[in-house]
Write a protein that binds this DNA or RNA. Structure first.
Lengths: 136, 136
DNA sequence: TATTAATTAAGAATTATTCTTATTTAGGAA
DNA sequence: TTCCTAAATAAGAATAATTCTTAATTAATA
Protein backbone atom coordinates (compact mmCIF):
# COMPACT_ATOMS: atom_id res chain seq x y z
CA UNK A 1 0.00 0.00 0.00
CA UNK A 2 2.93 2.27 0.78
CA UNK A 3 4.30 1.48 -2.65
CA UNK A 4 0.95 2.30 -4.25
CA UNK A 5 0.83 5.67 -2.51
CA UNK A 6 4.26 6.46 -3.82
CA UNK A 7 3.32 5.41 -7.31
CA UNK A 8 0.27 7.67 -7.29
CA UNK A 9 2.19 10.53 -5.75
CA UNK A 10 5.15 10.14 -8.10
CA UNK A 11 2.77 10.69 -10.98
CA UNK A 12 1.60 14.00 -9.65
CA UNK A 13 -1.76 12.81 -8.39
CA UNK A 14 -3.11 13.36 -4.91
CA UNK A 15 -3.22 10.22 -2.85
CA UNK A 16 -6.82 9.48 -1.92
CA UNK A 17 -8.42 6.40 -0.38
CA UNK A 18 -10.40 5.87 -3.59
CA UNK A 19 -7.32 5.96 -5.78
CA UNK A 20 -5.48 3.58 -3.50
CA UNK A 21 -8.41 1.19 -3.43
CA UNK A 22 -8.85 1.24 -7.20
CA UNK A 23 -5.18 0.66 -7.90
CA UNK A 24 -5.07 -2.11 -5.32
CA UNK A 25 -8.17 -3.68 -6.89
CA UNK A 26 -6.64 -3.79 -10.36
CA UNK A 27 -3.50 -5.41 -9.04
CA UNK A 28 -5.27 -7.82 -6.70
CA UNK A 29 -7.91 -8.92 -9.17
CA UNK A 30 -5.21 -9.45 -11.83
CA UNK A 31 -7.86 -10.48 -14.35
CA UNK A 32 -8.06 -7.27 -16.36
CA UNK A 33 -11.20 -6.08 -14.61
CA UNK A 34 -13.88 -3.78 -15.95
CA UNK A 35 -14.79 -0.57 -14.17
CA UNK A 36 -17.73 -2.42 -12.70
CA UNK A 37 -15.60 -5.33 -11.45
CA UNK A 38 -13.40 -2.80 -9.72
CA UNK A 39 -16.34 -0.96 -8.24
CA UNK A 40 -17.83 -4.18 -6.87
CA UNK A 41 -14.51 -5.20 -5.40
CA UNK A 42 -13.92 -1.98 -3.50
CA UNK A 43 -17.54 -1.52 -2.43
CA UNK A 44 -16.72 -3.75 0.54
CA UNK A 45 -14.24 -1.28 1.95
CA UNK A 46 -15.72 1.83 0.31
CA UNK A 47 -19.49 1.32 0.31
CA UNK A 48 -20.31 4.66 -1.24
CA UNK A 49 -17.84 4.83 -4.05
CA UNK A 50 -19.44 6.32 -7.17
CA UNK A 51 -19.05 4.78 -10.62
CA UNK A 52 -18.14 8.19 -11.94
CA UNK A 53 -15.22 8.27 -9.53
CA UNK A 54 -14.05 4.89 -10.70
CA UNK A 55 -14.06 6.09 -14.30
CA UNK A 56 -12.36 9.35 -13.36
CA UNK A 57 -9.63 7.61 -11.45
CA UNK A 58 -9.11 5.03 -14.17
CA UNK A 59 -8.81 7.77 -16.78
CA UNK A 60 -6.25 9.66 -14.76
CA UNK A 61 -4.23 6.49 -14.18
CA UNK A 62 -4.31 5.71 -17.89
CA UNK A 63 -3.21 9.23 -18.71
CA UNK A 64 -0.25 8.90 -16.34
CA UNK A 65 0.65 5.48 -17.71
CA UNK A 66 0.09 3.72 -14.40
CA UNK A 67 -2.46 1.39 -15.96
CA UNK A 68 -3.59 0.78 -19.50
CA UNK A 69 -6.78 0.02 -21.30
CA UNK A 70 -7.21 -3.50 -22.60
CA UNK A 71 -9.46 -3.37 -25.62
CA UNK A 72 -11.92 -6.15 -26.41
CA UNK A 73 -14.42 -7.02 -29.09
CA UNK A 74 -17.15 -6.56 -26.52
CA UNK A 75 -18.49 -3.26 -25.39
CA UNK A 76 -16.70 -2.97 -22.08
CA UNK A 77 -13.29 -1.55 -21.45
CA UNK A 78 -10.92 -3.47 -19.25
CA UNK A 79 -7.87 -2.29 -17.36
CA UNK A 80 -4.42 -3.63 -16.65
CA UNK A 81 -1.63 -2.57 -14.34
CA UNK A 82 1.44 -1.52 -16.29
CA UNK A 83 4.34 -3.63 -15.18
CA UNK A 84 6.80 -5.56 -17.34
CA UNK A 85 6.16 -5.57 -21.05
CA UNK A 86 3.75 -8.33 -21.93
CA UNK A 87 1.05 -9.34 -24.35
CA UNK A 88 -2.42 -10.79 -23.91
CA UNK A 89 -4.07 -14.12 -24.54
CA UNK A 90 -7.72 -13.59 -25.42
CA UNK A 91 -10.11 -16.50 -25.10
CA UNK A 92 -12.54 -16.49 -28.00
CA UNK A 93 -15.12 -18.47 -26.05
CA UNK A 94 -15.16 -16.54 -22.81
CA UNK A 95 -14.14 -13.14 -21.58
CA UNK A 96 -10.95 -14.44 -20.08
CA UNK A 97 -7.80 -12.46 -20.82
CA UNK A 98 -4.44 -13.64 -19.50
CA UNK A 99 -1.07 -12.00 -19.48
CA UNK A 100 1.55 -13.50 -21.74
CA UNK A 101 5.13 -12.73 -20.79
CA UNK A 102 7.68 -13.69 -23.39
CA UNK A 103 10.95 -11.82 -23.64
CA UNK A 104 11.96 -13.52 -26.84
CA UNK A 105 8.80 -12.37 -28.57
CA UNK A 106 9.12 -8.88 -27.14
CA UNK A 107 12.69 -8.71 -28.45
CA UNK A 108 11.78 -9.99 -31.87
CA UNK A 109 9.13 -7.34 -32.23
CA UNK A 110 11.31 -4.62 -30.82
CA UNK A 111 14.16 -5.44 -33.18
CA UNK A 112 11.86 -5.71 -36.10
CA UNK A 113 10.29 -2.32 -35.59
CA UNK A 114 13.60 -0.67 -34.78
CA UNK A 115 15.02 -1.55 -38.14
CA UNK A 116 11.75 -1.35 -40.05
CA UNK A 117 10.83 2.12 -41.13
CA UNK A 118 7.13 2.64 -41.71
CA UNK A 119 6.68 5.58 -44.06
CA UNK A 120 4.99 8.57 -42.42
CA UNK A 121 4.54 6.78 -39.13
CA UNK A 122 6.45 6.86 -35.87
CA UNK A 123 5.94 3.73 -33.79
CA UNK A 124 5.44 4.26 -30.07
CA UNK A 125 4.13 0.93 -28.86
CA UNK A 126 3.29 -2.54 -30.10
CA UNK A 127 0.56 -4.70 -28.68
CA UNK A 128 -0.14 -8.24 -29.60
CA UNK A 129 -3.51 -9.84 -29.19
CA UNK A 130 -3.19 -13.59 -29.19
CA UNK A 131 -6.63 -15.01 -29.80
CA UNK A 132 -7.50 -18.63 -29.12
CA UNK A 133 -8.83 -21.02 -26.51
CA UNK A 134 -7.78 -22.13 -23.10
CA UNK A 135 -7.84 -25.89 -22.62
CA UNK A 136 -10.81 -27.18 -20.70
CA UNK B 1 -21.03 -5.65 -57.07
CA UNK B 2 -21.40 -9.02 -58.73
CA UNK B 3 -18.44 -10.20 -56.71
CA UNK B 4 -19.98 -8.88 -53.52
CA UNK B 5 -23.22 -10.74 -54.22
CA UNK B 6 -21.27 -13.92 -54.69
CA UNK B 7 -19.33 -13.38 -51.51
CA UNK B 8 -22.53 -12.89 -49.52
CA UNK B 9 -24.24 -15.83 -51.19
CA UNK B 10 -21.22 -18.09 -50.80
CA UNK B 11 -21.45 -17.57 -47.06
CA UNK B 12 -25.01 -18.77 -46.91
CA UNK B 13 -26.61 -15.37 -46.49
CA UNK B 14 -29.44 -14.01 -48.58
CA UNK B 15 -28.36 -11.26 -50.91
CA UNK B 16 -30.24 -8.09 -50.02
CA UNK B 17 -29.74 -4.49 -51.13
CA UNK B 18 -28.85 -3.55 -47.55
CA UNK B 19 -26.18 -6.21 -47.27
CA UNK B 20 -24.69 -5.26 -50.59
CA UNK B 21 -24.67 -1.59 -49.67
CA UNK B 22 -23.06 -2.23 -46.29
CA UNK B 23 -20.37 -4.46 -47.69
CA UNK B 24 -19.69 -2.00 -50.46
CA UNK B 25 -19.50 0.82 -47.92
CA UNK B 26 -16.88 -0.94 -45.81
CA UNK B 27 -14.74 -1.62 -48.85
CA UNK B 28 -15.21 1.80 -50.41
CA UNK B 29 -14.65 3.77 -47.24
CA UNK B 30 -11.52 1.72 -46.49
CA UNK B 31 -10.99 3.61 -43.26
CA UNK B 32 -12.31 1.04 -40.80
CA UNK B 33 -15.66 2.73 -40.44
CA UNK B 34 -18.00 2.63 -37.47
CA UNK B 35 -21.58 1.42 -37.83
CA UNK B 36 -22.62 5.04 -37.97
CA UNK B 37 -20.10 5.92 -40.69
CA UNK B 38 -21.50 3.07 -42.73
CA UNK B 39 -25.07 4.13 -42.09
CA UNK B 40 -24.34 7.71 -43.16
CA UNK B 41 -22.59 6.53 -46.28
CA UNK B 42 -25.41 4.33 -47.48
CA UNK B 43 -28.20 6.71 -46.47
CA UNK B 44 -27.69 8.41 -49.81
CA UNK B 45 -28.76 5.34 -51.74
CA UNK B 46 -30.88 3.78 -48.98
CA UNK B 47 -32.54 6.68 -47.17
CA UNK B 48 -34.49 4.54 -44.75
CA UNK B 49 -31.90 2.09 -43.62
CA UNK B 50 -32.22 1.39 -39.90
CA UNK B 51 -29.26 1.39 -37.52
CA UNK B 52 -30.48 -1.92 -36.19
CA UNK B 53 -30.15 -3.38 -39.65
CA UNK B 54 -26.62 -2.09 -39.96
CA UNK B 55 -25.68 -3.75 -36.69
CA UNK B 56 -27.46 -6.96 -37.66
CA UNK B 57 -25.75 -7.15 -41.00
CA UNK B 58 -22.35 -6.33 -39.52
CA UNK B 59 -22.78 -9.06 -36.92
CA UNK B 60 -23.70 -11.64 -39.52
CA UNK B 61 -20.72 -10.65 -41.69
CA UNK B 62 -18.40 -10.93 -38.70
CA UNK B 63 -19.82 -14.33 -37.86
CA UNK B 64 -19.17 -15.54 -41.39
CA UNK B 65 -15.69 -14.08 -41.42
CA UNK B 66 -16.41 -11.69 -44.27
CA UNK B 67 -15.41 -8.70 -42.15
CA UNK B 68 -13.87 -8.33 -38.73
CA UNK B 69 -14.15 -6.07 -35.77
CA UNK B 70 -11.34 -3.62 -35.21
CA UNK B 71 -11.15 -2.84 -31.52
CA UNK B 72 -10.17 0.57 -30.24
CA UNK B 73 -9.56 2.29 -26.93
CA UNK B 74 -12.63 4.39 -27.62
CA UNK B 75 -16.14 3.20 -27.15
CA UNK B 76 -17.03 2.54 -30.75
CA UNK B 77 -16.49 -0.63 -32.68
CA UNK B 78 -14.99 -0.35 -36.16
CA UNK B 79 -15.11 -2.80 -39.03
CA UNK B 80 -12.68 -4.04 -41.64
CA UNK B 81 -13.06 -6.11 -44.76
CA UNK B 82 -11.18 -9.39 -44.45
CA UNK B 83 -8.71 -9.64 -47.28
CA UNK B 84 -5.03 -10.50 -47.08
CA UNK B 85 -3.54 -10.88 -43.64
CA UNK B 86 -2.49 -7.53 -42.30
CA UNK B 87 -2.05 -5.51 -39.13
CA UNK B 88 -3.14 -2.05 -38.09
CA UNK B 89 -1.44 1.26 -37.45
CA UNK B 90 -3.32 3.16 -34.77
CA UNK B 91 -2.77 6.89 -34.46
CA UNK B 92 -2.65 7.89 -30.81
CA UNK B 93 -3.64 11.46 -31.58
CA UNK B 94 -6.58 10.86 -33.85
CA UNK B 95 -8.98 8.07 -34.66
CA UNK B 96 -7.11 7.15 -37.80
CA UNK B 97 -6.42 3.47 -38.34
CA UNK B 98 -4.48 2.31 -41.36
CA UNK B 99 -3.80 -1.13 -42.73
CA UNK B 100 -0.25 -2.37 -42.47
CA UNK B 101 0.67 -5.11 -44.90
CA UNK B 102 3.98 -6.79 -44.20
CA UNK B 103 4.57 -10.38 -45.23
CA UNK B 104 7.87 -10.61 -43.41
CA UNK B 105 6.26 -9.64 -40.13
CA UNK B 106 3.35 -11.96 -40.71
CA UNK B 107 5.76 -14.82 -41.36
CA UNK B 108 7.87 -14.07 -38.32
CA UNK B 109 4.82 -14.18 -36.11
CA UNK B 110 3.42 -17.25 -37.78
CA UNK B 111 6.67 -19.14 -37.41
CA UNK B 112 7.09 -18.03 -33.87
CA UNK B 113 3.70 -19.22 -32.77
CA UNK B 114 3.93 -22.43 -34.73
CA UNK B 115 6.97 -23.54 -32.83
CA UNK B 116 6.06 -21.87 -29.55
CA UNK B 117 3.75 -23.91 -27.40
CA UNK B 118 1.71 -21.88 -24.96
CA UNK B 119 0.64 -24.13 -22.09
CA UNK B 120 -3.12 -24.71 -21.94
CA UNK B 121 -3.80 -22.43 -24.86
CA UNK B 122 -4.46 -23.07 -28.52
CA UNK B 123 -3.64 -20.07 -30.73
CA UNK B 124 -6.15 -19.28 -33.46
CA UNK B 125 -5.18 -15.81 -34.58
CA UNK B 126 -2.66 -13.09 -33.90
CA UNK B 127 -3.35 -9.41 -34.20
CA UNK B 128 -0.84 -6.68 -33.89
CA UNK B 129 -1.75 -3.17 -32.90
CA UNK B 130 0.98 -0.77 -33.89
CA UNK B 131 0.42 2.42 -31.95
CA UNK B 132 2.09 5.68 -32.88
CA UNK B 133 1.70 8.85 -34.91
CA UNK B 134 1.32 9.68 -38.53
CA UNK B 135 3.60 12.46 -39.72
CA UNK B 136 1.93 15.80 -40.10
C1' DT C 1 -4.84 25.66 11.07
C1' DA C 2 -6.76 27.85 7.12
C1' DT C 3 -7.05 27.92 2.24
C1' DT C 4 -7.82 26.39 -2.20
C1' DA C 5 -7.64 23.62 -5.99
C1' DA C 6 -8.49 19.01 -6.79
C1' DT C 7 -11.40 15.18 -5.86
C1' DT C 8 -15.57 12.82 -4.97
C1' DA C 9 -20.76 11.42 -4.65
C1' DA C 10 -24.94 11.44 -6.64
C1' DG C 11 -27.54 11.10 -10.18
C1' DA C 12 -28.92 12.97 -14.71
C1' DA C 13 -27.53 12.77 -19.57
C1' DT C 14 -25.45 10.73 -23.45
C1' DT C 15 -24.28 7.33 -26.76
C1' DA C 16 -23.34 2.91 -28.77
C1' DT C 17 -25.59 -1.17 -29.15
C1' DT C 18 -29.34 -4.54 -28.53
C1' DC C 19 -34.00 -5.91 -28.43
C1' DT C 20 -38.98 -6.17 -29.83
C1' DT C 21 -42.55 -6.29 -32.98
C1' DA C 22 -44.83 -5.72 -37.12
C1' DT C 23 -43.92 -5.50 -41.95
C1' DT C 24 -41.48 -6.70 -46.01
C1' DT C 25 -38.72 -9.50 -49.02
C1' DA C 26 -35.49 -13.10 -51.09
C1' DG C 27 -35.35 -17.18 -53.07
C1' DG C 28 -36.91 -21.92 -53.36
C1' DA C 29 -41.05 -24.75 -54.61
C1' DA C 30 -45.20 -25.51 -57.08
C1' DT D 1 -44.36 -17.11 -63.22
C1' DT D 2 -46.65 -16.98 -58.82
C1' DC D 3 -46.90 -18.56 -54.12
C1' DC D 4 -44.99 -19.52 -49.74
C1' DT D 5 -42.19 -19.22 -45.77
C1' DA D 6 -38.32 -18.35 -43.24
C1' DA D 7 -35.28 -14.75 -43.01
C1' DA D 8 -34.42 -9.89 -43.14
C1' DT D 9 -35.69 -5.17 -42.31
C1' DA D 10 -37.68 -0.62 -40.26
C1' DA D 11 -38.95 1.76 -36.46
C1' DG D 12 -38.33 2.89 -32.27
C1' DA D 13 -38.13 1.43 -27.39
C1' DA D 14 -34.83 -0.52 -24.07
C1' DT D 15 -30.32 -1.37 -22.19
C1' DA D 16 -25.78 -0.63 -20.56
C1' DA D 17 -21.35 1.54 -20.52
C1' DT D 18 -19.56 5.84 -20.03
C1' DT D 19 -19.60 10.89 -19.50
C1' DC D 20 -21.22 15.05 -17.60
C1' DT D 21 -22.97 18.34 -14.00
C1' DT D 22 -23.16 20.23 -9.64
C1' DA D 23 -22.56 20.62 -4.94
C1' DA D 24 -20.04 18.90 -1.09
C1' DT D 25 -15.73 17.09 0.61
C1' DT D 26 -10.82 16.54 1.15
C1' DA D 27 -5.64 16.44 0.36
C1' DA D 28 -1.79 18.96 0.64
C1' DT D 29 0.42 23.32 0.82
C1' DA D 30 1.18 27.88 2.91
Amino acid sequence: MQALSELINKNGLKVTPQRLAILDAIISLHNHPTAENICDYIKISHPNIAMGTVYNVLDSFVEKGIIEKVVTAHDVMRYDFVSEKHHHLYCSESNRIEDFYDDELTNILENYFNRKNIPNFKVKDIKLQIIGNFDK
